[in-house]
Nucleic acid binder design. Structure first.
Lengths: 193, 193
DNA sequence: TAACATAGTGAGCGATGATAACAGTGTCAA
DNA sequence: TTGACACTGTTATCATCGCTCACTATGTTA
């Protein structure tokens, strides 16, 4: 890492801006994240940001990318703690826990990265979408059609995503949330008609 | 409805502001909804809004309340088209369809009405939360514990909420969404471990 | 060392949410 | 009838925001 010194040129402003924005996201809603505040905290003029990001939107997009990578990494760690179906369930738990640990970043990801996780299209290796399809395909066995895999993947994803969102939106008591995760994911509930 | 005339006093400004805001929400993201634009469209000064709402936040909260009532109403209509478990499934479909038909309002509801739908607390009669608990309790039968009902309700809710959100966030192809609703809700997928 | 691309700066524009001071309007008691 | 007063609106103003413009400082390379 280059030393910033007290020079005119920052050295690695883009990285610093992303880092500071992520830092601010731990304390405040992404709707209240301002370019000027990020720049101020990094010690640079507000307009310097525009050398690295054409708009605020593009900064947010970069943050979402970063968050997505974090999520994928944590899911991989979680999966490594078990095998087979249990490993799959672990990725689900990791998903919800990531949302709870990084609420603002989690929301940001889904508002600013359209279509990146969809299980019906090609996704980069190691992405959450790729992991999801892999696990579902494995769980359903080799005779499952692509259609079946897609539906099952969407269902599993909907479940953990919905649970995450409802907890974040305080529709579930936070202290009841952790216990809820296991119950919901282990599918104790009823079948809908 | 009182006639507005060209008088100094509007007559029913609060209602007019809510109506115009809902109207704007059909075209634009709620993050980009501005008090000034609402006031402008209603033909009143920007600060007049503050006679009826202490802050922008409180206007948004009023919109969320309104949206929640709309959702409950549509779920009741949908439920009336069937009986038993089929009726329950209809409320799920109505939920997702409401989200798709009113994306901005739907998002607003969950960001600005913390805790209003939770199935673990008392909720007003006719509210979505009340409906949900009733249906789940009925589906599980009289021997189900409150705990079981709560978990099952959260699971069903997570599923439709997650599906709604993922479709809104364009993680599912919009034209594939409608077909997906039935498959997901009828629980064709796999069970998680 | 001169030329040039890169990465910063400050001034300023239009818009926003919000506050303060003020003005028009309706009601109701004296 | 009138006049005090609460209610509901207005104008002026503030700090902040995203963004553009013209400009300056720095690093690179011919």
């Amino acid at each position: 890492m280059k030393k910033a010194k007290q020079s005119y040129h920052h050295g690695d402003l883009r990285t610093a801006l992303v880092a500071e924005a992520l830092n601010l996201l731990e304390k405040q809603d992404f709707e209240h994240l301002s370019l000027r505040e990020v720049a101020r905290n990094v010690g640079v003029s507000a307009t310097a940001v525009y050398r690295h990001f054409p708009s605020k939107e593009s900064l947010l997009k970069a943050l979402a990318e970063h968050g997505l990578a974090m999520l994928a990494e944590q899911q991989k760690w979680a999966a490594a703690k078990a095998t087979g179906a249990a490993a799959f369930a672990q990725t689900g738990r990791a998903y919800v826990r990531f949302a709870l640990a990084n609420p603002n970043l989690f929301r940001l990801i889904f508002i600013h990265t359209p279509g990146r996780l969809r299980p019906d299209v090609e996704s980069p290796d190691g992405s959450p979408a790729r992991l999801l399809r892999g696990y579902v395909a494995h769980a359903l066995g080799p005779r499952a059609s692509a259609e079946q895999i897609f539906v099952a993947a969407m269902q599993a994803w909907s479940l953990v995503h919905g649970l995450s969102m409802l907890i974040l939106d305080e529709q579930v008591e936070p202290k009841a949330a952790e216990a809820m995760i296991d119950r919901i994911i282990s599918n104790e509930g009823l079948r809908l008609g």
